[in-house]
């Protein structure tokens, strides 16, 4: 179900070395209640798109719509945002900063305190009374995440949320984000680490040089771009088996290989051919990764 519509978003910057097109005619529909990956290499336009969605930068052309009408400033204020370039006032206590920013967001001082206490417990953060410079990077990132999550916003926009995090904290953050999505929020997170999208994102937008190259559900894209490849492991040596001509073998060992099958032969039919001659210990379709899909899209464009 489409929730946010991007309609022909374009943005150019004028720099000392000439004009730079950051985004060119980006059109996409973002579904509600999903984890959406905004993917692309560095400099592809991801941050610019997020800033336009948050209203920090105006688009040169195009519009952002939400549920059939232009996205209003009041609705934007309910969104939760975590920018890529993020920091804290070093000498100010973390809880004072949270209170300050939440008040700017529209909370009263009392409401802000209540919200901070809730998240301090939820994030296991009893150290919020400390000044920001006394906190580790992971702790600081948690503070910034609290700012984005406070008030349970319906739309979370996180720019490189896992950057600089150790695996433990990254897992914690991922868990919390999944919980939010399960509670009904929509999450748009940008990353240049395409492998992250594979296990995290339900929906992806692939941006390259300011243009939207690909958009769709992760599972559907993988099916669309699958190359009819399988991983197989047999008990008998691979070279002893009667492979049909439609099969191309890329052996890893004498018993394990990646096989590419022409579209006329199904996996089931192949198994039926092999089973009389060997036990099959492992057989799985090898779907392309998002990275492979992206590279394929970019090189053919």
């Amino acid at each position: 179900m489409s929730w946010i519509e991007l309609k022909g978003i374009s943005k150019r910057f004028t720099t000392a070395s000439g004009p730079v097109t950051a985004l060119q005619g980006v059109t996409a529909s973002l579904p509600k209640g999903a984890i959406i990956g905004l993917l692309g290499p560095n400099g592809s336009g991801k941050t610019t798109l997020l800033r336009i969605l948050m209203g920090i930068l105006p688009a040169d052309s195009g519009e952002v719509w939400c549920e059939g009408s232009p996205l209003s400033a009041s609705l934007r204020r309910t969104f939760g945002y975590m920018p890529e370039e993020r920091g804290l006032y070093p000498k100010m206590r973390a809880e004072d900063q949270l209170s300050y920013f939440l008040q700017l967001k529209g909370y009263s001082a009392k409401e802000a305190q209540k919200e901070i206490r809730y998240w301090a417990e939820r994030m296991e953060a009893p150290w919020l009374h400390r000044p920001a410079r006394a906190l580790s990077k992971g702790m600081q990132q948690k503070v910034q995440l609290i700012l984005a999550l406070a008030g349970n916003p319906p739309f979370l926009l996180l720019d490189e949320p896992f950057s600089g995090l150790d695996p433990v904290v990254a897992t914690e953050v991922e868990t919390i984000l999944r919980e939010r999505v399960q509670s009904g929020a929509t999450l748009l997170l940008s990353t240049h680490r395409l492998e992250q999208a594979d296990h995290l994102c339900d929906y992806v937008l692939l941006i390259h040089k300011g243009q939207l190259r690909l958009a769709g559900q992760t599972a559907a894209l993988k099916q669309q771009y699958k190359t009819h490849s399988y991983e197989i492991e047999t008990s008998a040596p691979l070279d002893a088996l009667p492979w049909p001509t439609e099969v191309t073998l890329s052996p890893h060992t004498s018993h394990r290989a990646t096989i590419h099958v022409s579209s006329t032969l199904t996996g089931k039919a192949l198994l039926e051919l092999l089973l009389p001659h060997t036990d099959v210990r492992f057989f799985a379709e090898k779907l392309p990764t998002i990275k492979e899909i992206f590279l394929q899209t970019v090189t053919t464009a």
């Binding site: 934007r76 204020r77 920018p83 993020r86 006032y89 700017l104 967001k105």
Partner: peptide, 16 residues
Amino acid sequence: LEEKTNRLAEYLLTHI
């Protein structure tokens, strides 16, 4: 400069 050096400007500009 405090807000620019500490990378706070962008977050502030989402609310004001």
